[in-house]
């Protein structure tokens, strides 16, 4: 595997039980990449996401994680659930929980973890919110908290599941700006599942479009020139 490849999908067939949703998918995610995954509901976007996260075994083919990725983990930003909306927890408690991975047991967080959490909160502009209760924050602020938690969990790859759903346009632009900063300045690879085509095409370096019968993977320019892309091309 090449040096800067974080994750490689080789001839993947994905789906549930024996029903394949995506077949013969091959792609690489390199460090510093920005990949947007699009497609209709039920086309297999979440299946792809679950497979990348290691929660679902592919029917055929394999997903190879580089040593660097295995070491640093994947920072995941899931869709918000209903029960989180009135959850009593402070921003700091939530951000710190990003450090709890499968690595051993512990009673408290280390000083290094505390300062790393502060750094991530500072980077995302939520440091002054650290003592506030999660349920009192705006949608955009909540996403920043979850993003800070994802950064605590991983330093190489962020995986986001429809992150702008439910955000107002200004908060959505804010989030894209933050992601661009993390991607360009910190070199973190971004993989985002989204329905927000306009913005996604403006931000992404690569596009994976999953259709009912076939999929397309390429750079954003290639996508816009493709048959599927041309249908969306007008909206840019």
């Amino acid at each position: 595997m090449e040096q800067n490849i974080l994750l490689a999908c080789r001839d993947l067939t994905l789906g549930y039980e024996q029903q394949a949703l995506v077949e013969h998918l091959t792609l690489d995610i390199a460090s510093g990449d920005y990949l947007c995954v699009m497609g209709e509901n039920g086309s297999g976007k979440s299946t792809f996401l679950k497979s990348i996260l290691g929660l679902l075994k592919p029917i055929r083919g394999e997903i190879i994680r580089s040593d660097a990725l295995r070491l640093s983990g994947i920072g995941y930003l899931p869709q918000q659930t209903q029960s989180q909306k009135d959850f009593p927890a402070t921003v700091k408690e939530i951000v710190l929980s990003g450090f709890l991975s499968a690595r051993g047991f512990r009673f408290t967080y280390s000083a290094a973890e505390l300062s790393a959490a502060m750094m991530h909160m500072g980077k995302l502009g939520i440091l002054e919110l650290q003592g506030r209760c999660y349920r009192e924050l705006s949608g955009g602020q909540q996403q920043r908290v979850l993003l800070a938690r994802a950064l605590c969990a991983a330093s190489k790859l962020l995986v986001l599941d429809e992150p702008v759903t439910g955000l107002d346009p200004a908060a959505a632009q804010d989030l894209y700006k933050t992601l661009r900063y993390l991607n360009e300045k910190e070199g973190i690879a971004v993989l985002m599942v989204t329905h927000d085509l306009n913005n996604a095409l403006a931000e992404a370096k690569h596009v994976l479009h999953i259709g009912r019968t076939r999929w397309f993977y390429g750079t954003t320019e290639e996508f816009l020139a493709s048959d599927t892309g041309r249908r969306f091309g007008g909206v840019r």
């Binding site: 996260l53 983990g73 994947i74 995941y76 710190l96 929980s97 990003g98 709890l100 991975s101 047991f105």
Partner: peptide
């Protein structure tokens, strides 16, 4: 509860995230 306090918090707050980080 004492031993798993942080983990109970993480799993209660967000099952999908905890699952993805290997818990």
């Amino acid at each position: 509860f004492l031993f798993f306090y942080h983990r109970i918090f993480a799993v209660t707050f967000d099952e999908s995230f905890s699952r993805a980080t290997g818990m």
